[in-house]
Amino acid sequence: MMGFTEDQIHRYARHLVLREIGGVGQRKLLDARVLIVGAGGLGCPAALYLAAAGAGRISIADHDAVAVENLQRQILYGSADVGRPKAETAAAALRRNNPDVIVEPLAVRVTAAGARALVKGRSLVVEGTDDPETKFAVNDACVAEGVPFVIGGVVRWSGQLMAVLPGKTACYRCVFENPPVTPAETCEAAGVLGPAAGAVGTLMAVEACKILLGKGEPLAGRMRVIDFLAGTSRDIAWKRRPGCPACGAAK
């Protein structure tokens, strides 16, 4: 069946019976080249679900080491991993889940200088760092290279995520213009509910799958804003901004 191994037929059985995936879709997932930027509260669940789903090649970028304060939400790590590099530790966890996936750890901080080379040639990028500079760098690089991406954030009991289809839908810079001049509120300072990060990261993986499969309505051109404490969510539609320095016509 479409060149799947016996193990793959069983491993992806619940995908193979889904009308929107099947053999054709699973092959798309297996052929995908995904970059995950940030192996933290959002990147951990997103990466784990994408690896489990059989996203064939996953590069995971994080320059940090595992801290004990991370363990409350960064579910790829255990107590024994404290002090170890996140990218390598995350990669090992993904391989343990699914040896079918080729995982590449990248112990780098993604900045404007290096982002474009990193995103080039990817099927999709997932941005889940807590670093505004990285968020905008990934946006600009993906827009320039035409790589679709899913970007999100979480703090306290709130989360937000959106997908960007470069040239087609509003980008992160259309919406937020520039990185904050004063430091943004971080999970370290303000706190975050562990499973809220898990929920947002998992929704990011759902959107990533939809884009890779070319199925459904991607959460692009709109942002989902979730208030987990109130138990509410809203979708805000954003149109591309003509003057956007990243994706606008007036470039």
Binding site: G40, K135, G153, V175, E185, A190, M223, V225
Partner: peptide, 10 residues
């Protein structure tokens, strides 16, 4: 009118 705060944590 829609107003959305930047949520940068991750």
């Amino acid at each position: 009118v829609e107003v959305v705060s930047f949520v940068g944590g991750g």
